[in-house]
Amino acid sequence: MRNANEVGNVAEIVSLAEGVGRLVHDGDMVALEGFTHLIPHAAGQEIIRQRRRDLTLVRMTPDIVYDQLIGAGCARKLIFSWGGNPGVGSLHRFRDAVQNGHPVPLEIEEHSHAGMANRYVAGASGLPFAVLRGYSGTDLPRHTDTIKQITCPFTGEQLAAVPALNPDVSIIHAQRADRAGNVQIWGLVGVQKEAVLAARRSLVTVEEVVDELEPVPGQLVLPSWAVTCVAEVPHGAHPSYAQGYYERDNAYYEKWDSIGRKRDSFEDWLREKVFTMEGAK
């Protein structure tokens, strides 16, 4: 039910535009993951460029990448646990959408990190929900109806239950893939494996496609048959970082604060940095 790969199918190597065009549809539930490291920014901008609408965006930490998608009007709903510009401050496009409904109203479904991580784990495990010690006494369950109490059938303890996340498509960025589409990731791996395995379809953008994946300590490998498409997108995580390739562009995060702050400056950015790049990839 979950995996788009038919028996014997392996990841196809495609261009970014083709990958997004084939896998991301209007109205889809889309997860872009990467916990501060390896954030798939180039893919996010390609979704804007292809003018996708009514997406339900899922991400633990909707930072700049979702500020851009929300500001461009691609999303109708956001499922998340922390929305800010890390180390800088607020996400102004996100705030404008929540507080003023601009450019389109944004419904939110708000969790904690532990809840979101467990929702992906349940999704990747083929289970309908996950159980955790969480949310007790907080105001979150009053506003988020995907948080319920459950009684342990063995001990009688009260615990929290959260439903599985099974995005239509999950998108992550990784360091490398080989020509067969096996994906190699190292450094902080966040919740990327769970996001890919929970999704019906997946797109992995990589810094480079190589003949052979040389082992790296602490690596994570996603086999080709667990991934739908791979696209080579050098620098595809900028302004976040790709360990072994480039550092986080902290100045860009600062700069985003002024770009995203005003509707005008954001529109200028969209025109100059996203739409004029049409077809360039």
Binding site: P86, G190, Y241
Partner: peptide
């Protein structure tokens, strides 16, 4: 660290683990 996931935190750590593992 400039952010919670600054590369320097991973490079100098005893162990690097996934986010679900951190919490669970």
């Amino acid at each position: 660290p400039a952010s919670i996931g600054d590369g320097i935190l991973a490079e100098t750590a005893d162990a690097v683990i996934s986010v679900p593992e951190v919490f669970n």
